[in-house]
């Protein structure tokens, strides 16, 4: 059936028409596979993303920041959960997908392979990393696959507080003691380029882009989104008196864009291939949680089975 060009044309017409593809609708096998890949990667990123920030929950320097950071990391767990449940509508199993993450077969966003070294990293991550994610996610809220779009709408609503919280933290630090200001500037210097890399390779080098755009899973090119993020963020940095570690940053009056320097794609490729600073630690942590949680999951299943068995016999 997937070989029939008429069926494929009808499918693509639905998408061009702005219709939502739902779990029980016909879809090309490749569409299903691409979505499973993209959505899994997205969900894995949320889960792994809990770790660099989770690293500082116990050291948050005020009770207000403590609850703010904990609530943010909790949201990330929730976002992972929404998307895993969305992937399951495509016929994939959460346990299998997670197994792929843990054995290194599946990818997640490269940004989470960087270590968080100071408290200021928490503000900078909220501002830059969540800021970059929002630029991406706002468009995904219109993705052609219904369950993904709906999960994204929920996520976008919750994400707004993350970025605001991050930027507030950054502005307080930037206006704080000399030590605080130095701390946040150092954090910006370490996270700026990795944040730009979150948008992925230049479209010239991105093989999947054209097909994903035709299928309404990707709405704008990597470069367009990256430029949008830079334009938004540079003004925010200027507003709080922080510099960005790019000597080539320059405003172009004609295009109204902030032109920026060359990204070090060697670093990106290294991190994406598993050779980043924290890749090993992130996966080890997730593997440990999975391993140590096995007896708990089994116990809950066993308890429920016993309850069902005893209630069945009572009913009989």
């Amino acid at each position: 059936m997937s070989d029939d060009p008429a069926v494929m044309a009808a499918f693509e017409a639905r998408i061009a028409n702005g219709e939502s593809i739902e779990p029980k609708d016909w879809m090309p096998e490749r569409y299903r596979k691409q979505l499973i890949r993209m959505m899994s990667q997205h969900a894995h990123s949320e889960i792994v993303g809990m770790l660099p920030e989770g690293n500082w929950i116990t050291r948050a320097p005020s009770l207000r920041r403590k609850v703010g950071l904990l609530a943010k990391v909790q949201d990330e767990a929730g976002h992972g959960l929404y998307i895993y449940c969305g992937v399951e509508t495509l016929g994939a199993d959460r346990t299998d997908i997670i197994a792929q993450l843990l054995d290194g077969r599946a990818k997640y966003s490269s940004i989470f392979n960087y270590p968080t070294l100071t408290w200021a990293d928490m503000g900078v991550i909220g501002w830059l990393v969540d800021g970059a994610a929002i630029v991406n996610q706002t468009l995904l809220a219109k993705a052609s696959y219904g369950p993904y779009a709906r999960a994204m709408i929920r996520i976008c609503k919750e994400e707004n507080f993350h970025k605001r919280q991050g930027y507030e933290m950054v502005s307080v630090l930037a206006a704080g003691t000399p030590a605080q200001k130095a701390m946040v500037q150092d954090a910006v210097n370490r996270f700026w380029w990795p944040s730009l890399m979150m948008f992925g390779p230049s479209d010239v080098n991105s093989p999947n882009s054209a097909e994903l755009m035709r299928w309404g899973i990707k709405r704008k090119s990597n470069d367009e989104l990256r430029q949008r993020f830079v334009n938004l963020t540079v003004t925010q940095a200027i507003a709080v008196g922080l510099t960005l570690p790019d000597p080539a940053l320059r405003y172009d009056d004609a295009t109204e864009n902030w032109d920026f320097g060359e990204i070090d794609w060697t670093e990106f490729n290294q991190v994406v291939r598993g050779n980043g600073q924290c890749n090993q630690e992130r996966l080890d942590t997730r593997r440990q949680a999975e391993r140590e949680g096995a007896w708990v999951r089994e116990a809950a299943s066993a308890y429920a089975a016993k309850q069902r068995a005893s209630s069945t016999s009572v009913a009989a």
Binding site: I47, M50, L51, G54, I57, T58, L63, R64, K66, V67, L70, A71, V73, Q74, A77, G78, G80, L81, Y84, T285, Q288, A289, E292, G293, A294, V296, R297
Partner: peptide, 28 residues
């Protein structure tokens, strides 16, 4: 709060975080 990101299943990470948030809120 130390459990966040290390729980036996995702749903429980969320549940334990809720409890920690309530407790720290009460403490505050």
């Amino acid at each position: 709060s130390q459990w966040c990101g290390h729980g036996p299943i995702l749903e429980e990470d969320i549940a334990l975080a809720n409890i920690a948030l309530d407790l720290v809120g009460q403490a505050t």
